[in-house]
Design a protein around this nucleic acid. Structure first.
Length: 695
RNA sequence: GGCGGGGUAGCUCAGCUGGUUAGAGCGCAGCACUCAUAAUGCUGAGGUCGGGGAUUCGAGCUCCCCCCCCGCUACCA
């Protein structure tokens, strides 16, 4: 358990495209902080690394939308996130950022070494280039006419009308979605990490870590064994925001954000320890642990280790205790729908209640499965556990001691039974923390406080003081020792509380370590105690009602069937990126004749049924007046089939037929997609004769 | 559809390699106490462990089938 000489603990680099919410805290930063604080309490050598992840396409989109530079975007969120972490007591050794100079050098050096050793597969392809904005275009940023079905708004990777997989060069009349101009083909090189070749090594690595959490291990297995196994992955991108690729012929290219982000852990360590950072990353006696959310498992358990293996000098993670996701009031957290409790807002509205949130989030942390945060539960846990059991014990003992013993620790002998109990609790908490079971550890902490309350009701010092001062003193002595133990043992979970208790006991936190917990002589007889104060206030009904109201009023209504939103930001541009991040830029101008080619008709849905073996498809029959057609539409996640019957819709009637899962679809139904991803039929306002021309 | 994770008391969750009466906290009911932020302590009621089948002397825990939730992936607007 303790053969490790030092620890390098990382917490996922939060993406600097928005603030941090309770899901991030519960899933990653809190468990990491608790673990680190515990290690420090045991006087272990530990660095705790984090920072903002500031590259990638979504940040450039945010910047463009807000009319500022990407650097301004990341500066803003880097500050907001860093401040929120600091105020919550997340005790990073350093909170760095990937736009730093150190990071640039480190990431480039890393890439360069792999490059020099021929570890990459170099592939030259012809890619479209936008001469107006002077950059290569990701496939998704090119639109044009689909060669298969004639849809004029097909994307460079795929036609969303007919479903054909495309490459940008297949498109007829391609145009850039950034400027609208006609892109030109230019040769470009990209460098791929051959994960397929590294697969045996990665599998071997995984085999050595069967002790990982079941959700983590299973997820990795699934990646390795499903389909064709791992595929080569490009580690560079044609983009102007990121770390420039440091090799000849790579002008205008940056490192793939998932290549540079984990290296951010290393560069941050360099910033922290310019001379000794290497021991924390290269010495076999260093234990590397990544705290992350479940969306990051593949990057931390497969891709990053693969990069490190290939590089050769670095140690690999010994554990990756990833958590599942936290839900809020019955729904998934969603940045785009503003369904979240933001840390910087909580801090303003619940002044000095950091430990309250830390407590609640730790006790419901999604360690083995998704879990649920509700404000009602927050209130209950704070009021009954923190106020009622923990805070109350401390208060009543200190008040009694002050009243009966002039605020001095009474004379008494050590109680063997209590010592055993306290030591047991300490061991249980220690064992839980060593194994990343933070909820359990916290619950055992409360049990220790509970024991103090039991002791008081059993021995009733307020009665015994009348005729047995010595016995009363012994009782309070025991309770005071429990409180001193609580001060030590609660520090990883509730650092602000711990400090307050130490103050009240007039003890120096630095003089005691984890090893001292369990002792029954932490406070010596005659020791003068400090000023007692309440540790926590009750949470009133109105406070949580206000929060629930705020949540609902600031978030758009959830559509029927739920939304397919991502809980955390998706850093790759793709069709299913969290909806609502932006309205799409306007497509290039067309002439009237282009429009006139489209024959739109009114039609009524006669029947609707789910398509077998497809989650999103509905098979519809639509009456167009002159004929009844079958149309397959990808809207199954938004509407129930029975709700559609009888609705009049607008149909693209002259679209080339297309087979979808074996069913011939003749036409397309028009829908408007709003900024949160909901679909709305575009229909004639009043019922119209089927087949009517729409123009 | 494929893969991974999960479905245990009203609620939130524990349950190790299968073994006697399935656990905790909250909530609920009753009792005790009054030092304490009307806080605390004790006692109790509450579960066909998603459904069905199989293996076993014995299964919440193993195997097969099905249903539901989460994630990835596929199909796809």
């Amino acid at each position: 358990m303790s053969e490790w000489k030092r620890y390098t603990i990382t917490a996922a680099l939060p993406y600097a495209n928005g603030p941090v919410h309770i899901g991030h805290l519960a899933g990653c930063y809190l468990p990491a902080d608790i673990y680190v604080r515990y290690l420090r309490a045991r006087r272990r050598d530990v660095v705790f690394i984090c920072g903002s992840d500031e590259h990638g396409v979504p940040i450039t989109i945010t910047a463009r939308r807000e009319g500022v530079t990407p650097q301004q975007v990341v500066d803003k969120y880097h500050r907001i996130m860093g401040d929120a972490f600091a105020e919550f007591g997340i005790s990073f050794s350093i909170y760095s950022r990937t736009s730093s100079q150190t990071h640039k050098e480190t990431a480039q050096g890393f890439f360069k070494k792999l490059y020099d050793e021929g570890k990459f597969i170099e592939q030259e392809t012809e890619q479209y280039y936008d001469e107006e904005v002077k950059q290569f275009l990701a496939d998704r940023y090119i639109q044009g006419t689909c060669p298969v079905c004639g849809n004029e708004n097909a994307y460079g990777d795929q036609c969303e009308n007919c479903g054909s997989s495309l490459s940008p060069t297949d498109l007829i009349h391609p145009h850039s979605m950034l400027s609208g101009s006609k892109p030109v083909l230019k040769k470009t090189k990209n460098w791929f990490l051959p994960l397929d070749k590294l697969q045996p090594q990665i599998a071997g690595y995984l085999e050595q870590h069967k002790d990982w959490k079941i959700n983590v291990y299973g997820q990795c297995k699934s990646w390795l064994e499903s389909g064709d196994g791992l595929q080569p992955r490009s580690m560079t991108r044609d983009l102007d925001w990121g770390v420039p690729v440091p090799v000849p012929g790579a002008e205008g290219k940056v490192l793939y954000v998932w290549f540079d982000a984990p290296i951010g852990y290393i560069s941050a360590t360099k910033d922290l320890l310019p001379h000794t950072w290497e021991t924390y990353w290269k010495d076999k006696d260093t234990r590397l642990i990544h705290f992350i959310g479940k969306d990051n498992i593949v990057f931390h358990c497969i891709i990053f280790p693969a990069m490190l293996m290939d590089h050769g000098e670095f140690i690999l993670a010994d554990n990756v205790p990833a958590n599942e996701f936290l839900n809020l009031e019955g729904q998934k957290l969603s940045t785009s729908r503003n369904w979240a409790v933001w840390l910087h807002e909580y801090l303003e509205e619940f002044k000095d209640k950091q430990d309250e949130l830390r407590y609640v989030l730790t006790s419901i942390a999604p360690e083995t499965k998704d879990s649920e945060f509700t404000w009602k539960d927050y209130q209950t846990r704070v009021n009954s556990e923190l106020v009622g059991i923990f805070g109350n014990l401390v208060n009543r003992v200190l008040v009694l001691t002050d009243k009966y013993f002039d605020n001095q620790v009474p004379e008494a002998r050590e109680c063997g039974e209590l010592k055993t109990f306290t030591t047991d609790q300490k061991n249980k908490i220690t064992d839980a923390l060593e194994n990343f079971r933070f909820r359990e550890g916290l619950s055992e902490l409360i049990n220790l406080a509970r024991h103090g309350n039991q002791l008081l009701s059993e021995k009733e010092p307020w009665k015994t003081i009348k005729d047995n001062r010595e016995y009363t003193g012994a009782t309070l002595y025991d309770c005071l020792q429990i409180i001193a133990n609580l001060a030590i043992l609660c520090e990883p979970f509730l650092p602000f509380t711990s400090k307050k208790i130490f103050d009240m006991l007039n003890l120096d936190p630095a003089s005691l370590s984890w090893e001292d917990a369990g002792r029954q002589d932490l406070l010596k007889p005659g020791h003068k105690l400090g000023q007692a104060a309440l540790l926590y206030q009750k949470i009133e009904e109105e406070q949580i009602e206000k929060q629930v109201e705020k949540l609902h009023s600031q978030s758009p209504q959830t559509p029927k069937g739920g939304l397919n939103t991502k809980t955390m930001e998706n850093k790759e541009p793709s069709s299913d990126t969290a909806p609502g991040s932006a309205l799409k830029p306007l497509s290039p101008e067309i002439v009237f004749d282009d429009f006139a080619r489209i024959d739109l008709r009114a039609g009524t849905i006669l029947s609707a049924e789910k398509v077998e073996k497809a989650d999103k498809l509905l098979k519809l029959t639509v009456d167009l007046g002159f004929e009844v057609r079958t149309i397959v539409s990808g809207i199954a996640e938004h509407f129930k089939p029975e709700d559609l019957i009888g609705i009049q819709v607008s149909v693209v009637a002259n679209l080339a037929p297309r087979k979808l899962r074996g069913i011939e679809s003749k036409g397309m139904i028009l829908l408007a997609e709003d900024t949160v991803g909901r679909l709305h039929f575009v229909s004639p306002k009043d019922l119209t004769e089927n087949g009517s021309i729409i123009k």
